[in-house]
């Protein structure tokens, strides 16, 4: 068909009042982004099926999906997923509470800043994985230490963004608010915190991905449940399909955490230009 007349000369097929051509084209446009992952999966499947690779080391996508199906229906997955999600969520919310709280205190008082800021700067660069042994000795190898390790990882982006957010509020905006009668607590709750909210929420969003990455590490090191444990346990017994299925679940978990955080960000900051 000639490009210049395609709107006129193409046959119009109508199904239930919908133009079938337009429909399929919009479907194609929307699914364009899926094309390259699908091709990769196809090639992968083909390579395994044609036995270029031993499926023992790298199972075909279809057998991973089959394994996922089995895991879903035996209930094994739900138990692991439940444990993982509750650890990540507990650690994350504890970090949010502490991060925003400490951040506000530091931004509020010069004295608190001098007291706490050096500590933050000293502990922040220490790798979360490096402190895992300490946490295990102090809090045991149960869920408490796992949650606290996740808290440690999520705390820093939140606290730093909270401090930067409050300190970055335009001093003239504060003066405008004061001239309208906002002082003390009202100035904080009605002007400083709302003004810093975009920054605080960005920190909280960065922290969601930290919570999942840390969760995986902790569960692989020491746990008897959780998706991270499921993956490492599958590796130990060479159940590669289960291992791949678990990795897939972990990616989906990280992705959905970020989506939820983004949704909250959009809801809360409808006024903000940046989102």
């Amino acid at each position: 068909m000639d490009g210049s007349t395609k709107g006129l000369s193409r046959p119009v097929v109508m199904v239930n009042g919908t133009d079938l051509f337009c429909f399929s084209r919009s479907l194609f446009n929307r699914s364009k982004k899926l094309l390259s992952p699908l091709i990769c999966l196809g090639v992968w499947e083909l390579i395994v099926r044609l036995e270029f690779i031993n499926p023992f080391f790298c199972p075909a996508p279809t057998s991973i999906v089959k394994e996922l199906y089995v895991l879903l229906f035996t209930g094994e997955l739900w138990m692991h997923l439940g444990d993982s999600v509750s650890r990540a969520v507990c650690g994350y919310f504890l970090a949010s509470l502490l991060g925003v709280g400490v951040g506000l205190l530091v931004a509020w008082s010069r004295f608190v800043e001098d007291l706490i800021d050096p500590l933050i700067e000293l502990i922040r660069p220490v790798s979360t994985f490096a402190v895992i042994p300490i946490f295990f000795i102090w809090f045991g190898i149960g869920d408490v230490s796992k949650v606290l390790i996740i808290t440690k990882a999520c705390f820093f982006p939140i606290v730093l963004n909270t401090i930067a957010g409050i300190k970055g509020v335009d001093p003239k905006l504060i003066q405008a608010a004061r001239s309208l009668g906002a002082e003390g607590i009202a100035l904080w709750t009605r002007v400083l915190i709302p003004s810093a909210l975009p920054m605080i929420l960005t920190g909280m969003r960065v922290a969601t991905s930290m919570s999942v990455t840390t969760l995986v590490g902790v569960e692989m090191l020491s746990a008897d449940s959780g998706i991270g444990f499921m993956v490492i346990d599958a590796q130990r017994v060479f159940a590669t399909e289960k291992m791949f299925a678990g990795i897939l679940i972990l990616s989906a978990l990280g992705f959905s955490f970020d989506r939820v955080a983004r949704l909250v960000q959009h809801r809360v900051l409808a006024w903000h230009k940046g989102v």
């Binding site: 405008a176 309208l180 002007v191 709302p194 909210l197 903000h272």
Partner: peptide
């Protein structure tokens, strides 16, 4: 009451 050159409205 004060009015500023930069308006300084509360964007939220």
């Amino acid at each position: 009451a004060m009015v500023f050159q930069e308006y300084l409205l509360f964007p939220w």
